[in-house]
Nucleic acid binder design. Structure first.
Lengths: 187, 187
DNA sequence: GTCTATAGGAAGATAGAC
DNA sequence: GTCTATCTTCCTATAGAC
């Protein structure tokens, strides 16, 4: 019998939590083992490539979830403002109201940088690009200016998560999300 | 003869570079040794507390430099706008035009979080507080609103550094700094 | 598919010569 | 103050029983 889907999802959730919290180098096999309740050897059975494969799997899965929950709603139905509101609502959930770090951030330090830089780079670019299109659609700004505004928002969100991790305060993160739909009022 | 000042400063610069780039857990004794040109044992001679003491020293030194280069100018002479311009210019240098990560960010992941959370928390609070005072002085906004604006800017800066680390692109960081003095035009 | 046991190496840290 | 040599612990990874 193959590894059941439910089990895998649960395991992946726990692995994700570890990588998000402590980064790539901080995620020791001991921590990953403890978090999942699986012994090292069992983890290697599921991920023959070891820690690197675990991180890759987690990163790809987060990318898919981000696509579904954040980017697709941005490209979906409704006015640009409605879509931004949806994005904000889903971002709040995705980042657990500011209590969860962004993998693109924590995995871009140290050895993680070496391994995942290309993926991280593309993920940021895609997010910004998708958001920029909505901005351009909802305003009469140039493409270049729309991209700047999209970048600004992504930076604010990332910065809010850094601040939340550093201070334990999540209010600023929530404020950033609240302000998201209003970027269409930019002149 | 005690360790000369010049030597120490140089050593500390190199240690800082390592911690900034790879974080606490990524900063192995091997890397710290290689970066400084000192053998492990020599590092332990200078920092009997080992890696933890190195990181502490680096963090405190960066805090002092930040105070001198960023916060003191904010509290110094000139109009609020001039002071913000000075801050922006000095931030550009402090973060090497966006190419250097913020220690408060990279050290707030994993084991670094456990060790330095209090210092990190206080550093962010002090930065925001100092900046908020300038905003309040340069506008007719309430204290609470001024603090929000200060938070926004610190978040933008941190987010810009995350984006720069993740994508290698530093233009957004420089744009954030350019926009800094204009926050006084907020209504 | 999970486990125990262990290999092999790199981690942080120390001893003691110079 | 710096070095070489070494200690112990923890790391990633594998072997093989069940």
């Amino acid at each position: 019998m193959p590894i059941t889907k439910v089990e895998s999802e649960d395991i992946l959730d726990r692995l994700t939590e570890v990588f998000r919290t402590v980064g790539y180098e901080g995620a020791t096999l001991s921590k990953l083992s403890e978090a999942t309740g699986l012994q090292r050897a069992s983890l290697y059975h599921r991920f023959p490539g070891g820690k690197k494969e675990m991180a890759e799997t987690v990163l790809l899965r987060c990318g898919s979830q981000f696509q579904e929950q954040i980017l697709n709603p941005l490209k979906g139905e409704g006015t640009p403002e409605e879509r931004l509101q949806r994005m904000a609502r889903n971002l709040s959930q995705y980042y657990q109201k500011g209590n969860a770090a962004c993998l693109l951030d924590t995995l871009s330090v140290g050895e993680g940088q070496d391994i995942f830089s290309q993926h991280i780079q593309e993920s940021f670019a895609l997010w910004i690009e998708t958001l920029a299109k909505v901005v351009q659609e909802g305003t009469d700004l140039t493409k270049a200016r729309s991209k700047q505004i999209a970048e600004d928002q992504v930076m604010k969100i990332q910065g809010a998560l850094v601040l939340a991790r550093g201070t334990g305060v999540t209010k600023p993160f929530q404020r950033v999300l609240q302000g998201l739909p209003e970027i269409l009022k930019t002149k």
